[in-house]
Design a protein around this nucleic acid. Structure first.
Length: 291
DNA sequence: ATTCCAACCTGATAGC
DNA sequence: TGCTATCAGGTTGGAA
């Protein structure tokens, strides 16, 4: 699900629910793929702690705790981090959804996919982490501990410069889209915004990286920054599962140019948007506007 | 060194 | 209606 804009919107809106509140209890599901730190360790170490700051590196959220440990959260494909008070159909299984009368609102009740729940001393609303596919990650770092997952990340995609893409793309025969998705080159771009940025810069996703001119790299970097900034402004893309911590949908899906628009008319030239697999991902582009 | 691709999971939906 | 195949905002690790 979530790329840089969705993670940043999540960070901004969950921050007030997390920072400065003392954790009373931690509830988890059983050990599984998403717990890089065993759930019993999380429960033991987090009880009584207070979050002092919430940061972001690429698609990772990093909560700094008052004992100098850090809780790292990655939302994977279907991860949702939200307040107990959030209400959204996206937090419900389709079966539950269908049983609901139209317009009916229900408070979220933790289900089998709600793997991590924080309750606080102030008795206010809890903070929940739900992840159907369990591709998300929870990891507790010791003070000053480094971790390859974070060490490997390139500069944040909001700050990418054409020069970075130009240098990295020399003598690389892979499609330019594959480079954009490489988190060790720049951190935060995923499948939606790779396709969108390539459209905005007029570059075909399948172009060999080494064939891009310096000017095209500049345009591409500018497009990456622009599309990410704009998506953050609109609250991110709610196409499938993404919901903000307050239960609200993002709105960038209404502004997208090519992603998930196969067969529909390009807004710029009217050609039908095409879809094919590039870098093992579904890839959308305009055959006329992108060279 | 670079590129490819299966694996990690579950659910929704398109197609027969 | 019902079953099966395919696809999904991600990342890693190991094979080719």
């Amino acid at each position: 699900m979530p790329e840089l804009p969705e993670v940043e919107v999540t960070r901004r809106r969950i921050e007030p629910h997390l920072v400065g509140r003392r954790i009373r209890t931690v509830r988890t599901t059983a050990a599984s793929y998403l717990f890089m730190t065993p759930p019993e360790t999380l429960r033991r170490r987090l009880r009584g702690r207070t979050t002092t700051a919430l940061g972001r590196l690429g698609k990772y959220l990093i909560a700094e705790l008052d004992d100098r440990r850090r809780l790292v959260i990655h939302l994977g494909m279907t991860g949702q981090l939200f307040s107990q008070t959030a209400s959204s159909l996206r937090l419900l299984a389709a079966s539950t959804r269908q049983a609901l009368a139209p317009e009916e609102q229900v408070d979220f009740r933790p289900d089998a996919h709600t793997h991590f729940r924080l309750a606080f001393d102030d008795d206010g609303p809890g903070v929940y982490f739900r992840d159907v596919r369990k591709f998300g990650k929870l990891l507790l770092l010791e003070p000053d501990e480094r971790h390859p997952r974070l060490e490997r990340l390139g500069p944040d995609a909001l700050e990418v410069h054409g020069e970075l893409i130009f240098r990295a793309s020399r003598k690389r025969r892979v499609p330019i889209k594959q480079l954009l998705l490489d988190q060790s080159l720049l951190a935060g771009v995923g499948n939606i915004y790779a396709d969108e940025a390539l459209f905005l810069s007029g570059v075909r996703p399948g172009r060999r990286a080494e064939r891009l001119t310096h000017r095209e790299c500049d345009l591409l970097a500018e497009a990456v920054r622009r599309v990410l900034r704009r998506s953050i402004e609109t609250g991110g893309s709610s196409i499938r599962d993404y919901v903000a911590p307050d239960g609200r949908d993002g709105a960038y899906q209404f502004e997208r140019h090519v992603y998930a628009r196969e067969g529909e008319a390009c807004f710029a030239c009217g050609s039908a948007v095409r879809k094919r697999v590039i870098a093992q991902r579904g890839t959308h582009y305009c055959p006329t506007c992108q060279k």
